[in-house]
Simulated assay, not measured.
Amino acid sequence: MSLVIRHGKIVSSTRIIDDGYILIKNGSIAEIGREPFTGFAEETIDAEELIVLPGFIDTHTHGIQGLDFTSNRDPYSILEMARHYARHGVTGFVATTVTAPLEVLEEACKAVGEAMEMWRGGGSRILGMHLEGPYINPDAAGAQNKIYIRTPNVDEFKRLAESCRGVVKQVTLAPELPGAATIIAYARSAGITVSAGHTNASYDDGLRAVELGVTKASHLFNGMTRFHHREPG
């Protein structure tokens, strides 16, 4: 199967081609160039006056089109969301839950895992699950339900992550909380990305968190310590 996208404004990681083409063979990009295209393709898409660029990867998204990953805990709803994401240029996403009871998070994780197994290319690729909470600071809860916020406990988190069988790819937590450091260490060993969020961490807390293995920030500057002339936050 071959497909060529023609006459689009192509944006790649290294250049912009105002009148270009992309040749795709068997699902992979075979050639990118400037018009005219002189090769052969079984199918042609005219992208004149359109921008053609790599698909977006969304690592923090709670849902779309009236559906969400915490409430709609079944693989069919997740696959439906995947189709909606693809229509908006998102080619891969990490399904994100909100702070909720552990049993709800386990059910959501199971549904995401089942959807990943069922996915056959009909929509955006499901890359895993992002747990936003429950180990966040109640003083920076924002829209998260404080009732379900929990004290960081590495054994509890380990049981949750292991029950998800590799589906959890990211966790957002407040690194200044007692017990958070051990979760960060375990998450790193398990290949789970740790993001700081819903946190009252100080600047020094943030530096220590980075040293421990925190590599991201969830909604940077939102749900975090504010700037102050004597404390950078």
Rank of each mutant, 00 (worst) to 15 (best):
G89A: 12
G179C: 09
L220I: 08
E117A: 15
V104W: 01
R208G: 14
Q144F: 08
V194K: 04
T14K: 12
S77L: 08
G142E: 13
A86W: 00
A108H: 03
E106R: 14
L177E: 02
E43L: 02
E43K: 00
A115Y: 03
L3E: 00
D204K: 15
H84I: 10
I10E: 00
R87A: 15
A82V: 04
G197N: 05
S28E: 00
E132Q: 05
N200S: 07
G33V: 00
L173F: 01
D155W: 14
D68H: 12
K25S: 14
N153E: 07
T215W: 05
Y21A: 06
P152M: 03
P232N: 03
L67G: 15
H228L: 05
N26M: 12
V112T: 07
F93C: 09
L127C: 13
A108Y: 05
V171F: 10
T61N: 09
P36A: 07
T172M: 02
E132V: 03
S195Q: 06
I149E: 05
K9V: 15
E117M: 10
G66S: 07
V171D: 13
L160A: 07
G66N: 02
T172W: 01
T199A: 12
G223W: 04
P232G: 05
G191K: 02
V210L: 15
F69G: 07
R83K: 15
I10M: 04
T59S: 10
G55A: 09
T99E: 00
I192H: 09
E176G: 11
R87L: 15
I126Q: 08
E132M: 08
Y135W: 09
G39I: 04
P175L: 13
L79D: 08
F69W: 10
S202Y: 06
K216P: 10
F56G: 10
R120F: 11
D68R: 11
G66A: 06
A201G: 06
Y21L: 01
V90Y: 03
G122I: 02
A82P: 00
A108R: 01
F221S: 15
T44R: 09
F157W: 09
F93M: 01
D58A: 08
L105A: 11
A180Q: 04
L23N: 03
D58V: 03
I17T: 12
L131T: 07
G142P: 11
A209D: 02
G122E: 02
V210H: 03
N200G: 12
S28Y: 05
R125A: 15
V112H: 04
I29W: 02
F93R: 04
V167F: 09
A196K: 06
I16M: 11
A217Q: 15
G113R: 05
L220K: 15
E176R: 09
